[in-house]
Write a protein that binds this DNA or RNA. Structure first.
Lengths: 292, 292, 292
DNA sequence: ATAGGTTTTGTCAAGCTTTTGTACAT
DNA sequence: ATGTACAAAAGCTTGACAAAACCTAT
């Protein structure tokens, strides 16, 4: 993960040399001959370099490695626009930082950066953590910012679609295998299926088999699928009670044969005598359900 | 090798020669005789070429290779409209192409490129496909090239470790859930565990739960683990029959309590009355085993 | 967990020295030369420091450890905004407790629990801390328990493979970047590569670029890789001197061209005139090496 | 292709200054 | 506690040098 850096640090030539792998003598020679750097000076006359200078030196070294002569490499490096970045020292795993980077990339429609952030996440930690510590909070935040008008519809769409693609990528094959079977769907009119996908992934990680009908599924289709697939669990998710209410009677009738749950923000107010209600963090809810 | 193109790099004649494969003397002769290039000069008089010049030289070489006389080739190359080539955008998903790119990156110790290739793969297709269409063939090929001396041990190690990291990353969480349990190990002396990991991943994708002991596990330990974990399936994998043979008696004794399989190239000749033999593509074998 | 700091506590210079690890003389020198701190005075003239001062000193020390000169470190530390309420550095996680939980999970072949423990760790603290406070001690302990027969080979294998997967996951991208290049390998016959991976991660966090050949690499291959990659540092690690000895002559020949180090328990007894010896905690050793 | 001269570039040395941790005297 | 001293480490400038890479002309 790459963070922007407060370019306050002033390095002396030895440190610049250590970080860049270029000897102090050579650094001075490059300055003298090509004006590659213009370090400020300490009161006593020692050179003080910025982190940008470090990047410049690295760039020059790379050009030399590419076969350019020193002078040409310097000319190129001197006028290149540099973005000072640094590997996070806390590279461990800082959920807030990653979330921020994800938000930045998404807002800027920077798809590669967003994908890279997710790639890095998946490499560094478990799927559960990615989902519950980063993606779910990010989605929540995105919703809030959208409601507050801080995010355009285009940005929201961009982010949703990118994440949907990624999550469905992770989901590939979740309908396979011998575990208990869960059927997931959003009712007619509901198009927010990301939370449901996250829930499905968490369930999958717990050994379940997932059948996903996705957004905007008519009641009849849900019932039909239950009949033909005979899942151990049916989850219907929506963001508002109005969308959920029309489905409830039919679900109640199913509840004899199989476990049925309502999920999402819309499930909050609907009581479930026979129906389970899952309104918390999708991963935690998956844990709860899987543990039964 | 991919070179940066963004720029007005000025190449000296040596570098132009390296990149074009045309000797410096000849380059100068072409300039003198046909005015093929008009390099700028450094303050000291050295020729400085642009990337466009490089393209021009390449074009001329191609024309010569096509049988044209030098003068005609030069005339053609001199007035041809040139586009400075950039890196080709990556194609959607061409298993062979990705495999080739993976091989290139690995051979060059280019970790980021190899990781990116795998990232792209995972985003583009299913894990099963990644494993059986790309990684397994790549590993097979790597082994063959290693045997033929085309790949150094260092390259083979580099590639193995990188892949092991990726595969174990994908494996995170495979020990969780309520599915049937498989215990995977290589016998003493066997250090090739990548095929076994691939098999485990395929099994996991089919809902199984995996306990992985990895390379070089003594017979006693396998038996002990079987006793404490009571798996539904035990798989022992090795590349040669000699390594597998000493374990067979103990495995036969286990075969009453649980399904036991021999896997890998070493399993070929050992028939198993009581023991299953898995010698094919790990993913297909996982399919077979999971289907029982 | 956030604690409010009662900024009433007044530390005398001795106590500040103990808590910060900086000698009283040096603290006074920093005050005089860089105005780093402005302690209040007791009636008798003794300096009285606040907890904020302590943080400032620690920050300065960290900058110095990062390679900055004292004056620049002081400038940075002096104007850094220090939060009055700050994260409790130690209360957030209890290294010993996590280590115990990790050991429990590993012994029980409980993969999800072990993964969760590591996830928690990574979220709670820096990679350096995770490595040096938990994983390295855990590995040491595991080795000791294995030697004492308290842990089966199966358990040891299970734990190693799980950790290897996590560490290599964190290692993703360590071959990228413009930093100085380090080549890491174990000699023929050596299969313990975890310590070396930890070292590589620590080096990476310090801006280096890592090429990893891993366990069981023949001498020729190491030499060949050095020639083609031209690293600034070569590290060869083994658990016993017998495994390391055969490689030493070849390494000595490399030592003219590049820095060469022996690492691991096996390096202890081998003297290195031309060779560096790294036998301590991998993270500390990385610190040392990176600082050269 | 070779010969003979020039440019470029990394490295080194000598002699002097600045910086900084530690020590000592008051 | 203060103030001064000191020595090691790290830098500075100037100048020089030699290997590598290029040049022109034959």
């Amino acid at each position: 993960m790459v963070y922007r850096v407060d370019d306050d640090s002033r390095l002396r030539i030895g440190e610049l040399s250590r970080r860049s792998g270029v000897s102090p003598e050579l650094l001075r020679a490059w300055e003298r001959r090509y004006d590659l750097l213009e370090p400020t000076r300490s009161p006593g006359g020692l050179r003080l370099y910025s982190l940008e200078d470090l990047e410049r030196v690295r760039l020059m070294s790379r050009h030399i490695a590419d076969g350019l002569a020193a002078r040409e490499a310097a000319a190129l490096a001197a006028r290149a626009p540099l973005e000072v970045t640094r590997e996070a020292p806390t590279a461990a795993f800082d959920a807030a930082a990653v979330r921020a980077e994800l938000a930045r990339a998404m807002d800027a429609f920077d798809e590669p950066a967003a994908q890279a952030a997710i790639d890095g996440l998946l490499a560094a930690t478990t799927l559960d953590t990615v989902l519950s510590e980063v993606l779910v909070p990010y989605l929540r935040e995105l919703g809030a910012r959208w409601a507050a008008g801080e995010v355009s519809v285009a940005q929201e769409h961009f982010a949703s679609n990118l994440l949907r693609g990624r999550l469905l990528g992770l989901a590939r094959g979740w309908g396979r295998g011998g575990g208990r079977r869960a059927l997931l769907a959003c009712p007619s009119g509901e198009r927010h299926d990301l939370g449901l996908i996250v829930f499905g992934l968490a369930l999958r990680a717990r050994g379940w088999r997932v059948d996903f009908l996705g957004a905007d599924t008519p009641t009849d289709s849900i019932v039909g699928a239950v009949e033909s697939l005979a899942p151990a669990l049916v989850v219907v998710s929506a963001t508002s009670p109005e969308l959920l209410a029309p489905v409830v009677p039919a679900l109640r009738r199913l509840a004899g044969r199989t476990q049925v749950a309502l999920a999402g923000a819309g499930a909050r107010e609907l009581d479930g005598d026979a129906l389970l209600t899952l309104t918390g963090d999708p991963v935690m809810e998956a844990d709860r359900v899987a543990g039964r």
